[in-house]
């Protein structure tokens, strides 16, 4: 029996290579600012308890992502965790916990890239947490803290955090010129509207248990943290902004493409490689462009073959040497 830590099936952790350098660097900048502020706030609120609490809960969220349930033969739903972390810990601590989880996933398990880590933190630890916070606090205060309000708030905050995060991912991919907005946005939104239901169900299940055994942990709804209003407003703006921006971008992908080109996101026009290395083509293929690509691929295969051969020889030498 191996419940090996599989990479999360939802396309949320962006690997390296998919985001342009500009997008990566900007999102790193935003994430660093948010993390720095969250560190300050959590340190003020929790003091010396911060390190053990954050560390162990990050480990719990990581492990909690392994708890899946069968949806239909072969597929399963499971947890991202931003919503449950926000509800139980408040927004700032949740930012730190999610940052820790995502960083370890990237650094150790290559679930998400290192250069793309800033973007992944921005999506899951900043947007995911902010949207969860807005949805949960709004619904809980509207229903004046009744039991069904807590559960409904939990479900909706989990669902909307997944969906809005996926919209952000789609927009970043479009801005980087990796996938066209008119395909990426609807596809991501549709997939995650379904995945979000699984997240919502798990979150409600977790809340139900906490509600009946440790109701004291659910105080966030009653006494919001200092600066909670600010988080609320920013979260709402993020959610609305992404919800409006992404359909717009998807309806008018050329617009986004133009923005991307003007800002230099899409990389500069390619130089005349054929002039610099005139013979860098394969003979027998009339289409020069295709020949260049094929030559590139062939080069990769050759390098790869040589590496495998060297590795193999080295191993057999070691075996005979022993």
């Amino acid at each position: 029996m191996l419940y090996a830590p599989v990479p999360s099936p939802e396309p949320m952790h962006i690997p390296d290579g998919f985001l342009s350098v500009t997008v990566s660097v900007i999102l790193w900048g935003i994430s660093i600012i948010v993390i720095a502020y969250a560190l300050k706030r959590v340190n003020a609120d929790l003091g010396e308890r911060q390190i053990p609490l954050m560390g162990v809960l990050a480990a719990a969220i990581f492990a909690g992502q392994m708890l899946n349930f069968t949806v239909a033969g072969g597929t399963s739903g499971h947890l991202m965790g931003a919503a449950i972390a926000t509800i139980l810990l408040g927004p700032w601590a949740a930012v730190l916990v999610m940052t820790t989880v995502i960083s370890i996933q990237a650094l150790i398990f290559q679930d998400g890239g290192m250069l793309a880590l800033g973007a992944n933190i921005f999506n899951m630890a900043v947007i995911g947490v902010a949207v969860s916070y807005v949805a949960y606090t709004t619904i809980v205060s509207l229903t004046s803290n009744r039991k069904w309000g807590v559960f409904m708030g939990g479900f909706l905050s989990a669902w909307s955090s997944i969906v809005v995060t996926s919209l952000a991912v789609a927009l970043q991919l479009a801005l980087s010129g990796t996938s066209p907005a008119n395909l990426a946005v609807p596809a991501m939104a549709a997939i995650h509207a379904i995945i979000g239901i699984g997240e919502g169900l798990i979150t409600v299940g977790a809340l139900a248990l906490v509600y009946s055994t440790r109701p004291d942990l659910l105080k966030l709804g009653q006494a919001g943290p200092k600066g909670g209003k600010l988080v609320w407003v920013i979260g709402l703006l993020l959610a609305i902004g992404l919800a409006i921006l992404s359909p717009l971008a998807s309806a008018n992908p050329d617009g986004l493409e133009r923005v991307a080109e003007q800002k230099g996101f899409l990389g500069i026009a390619k130089g005349p490689i054929y002039e610099v290395i005139p013979d860098y083509v394969l003979p027998g293929i009339s289409n020069e462009a295709l020949a260049t690509i094929l030559a590139g691929v062939l080069g990769v295969i050759i390098v790869f073959g040589v590496a495998l051969a060297v590795a193999y020889m080295r191993r057999s030498r070691q075996v005979s040497g022993d």
Binding site: G77, V204, G205, A206, V210
Partner: peptide, 15 residues
């Protein structure tokens, strides 16, 4: 889904 949630909840409480 709720059972998986209950398991996640108990994991968090233990944490």
């Amino acid at each position: 889904g709720r059972m998986a949630g209950g398991m996640a909840g108990s994991l968090f409480l233990r944490a």
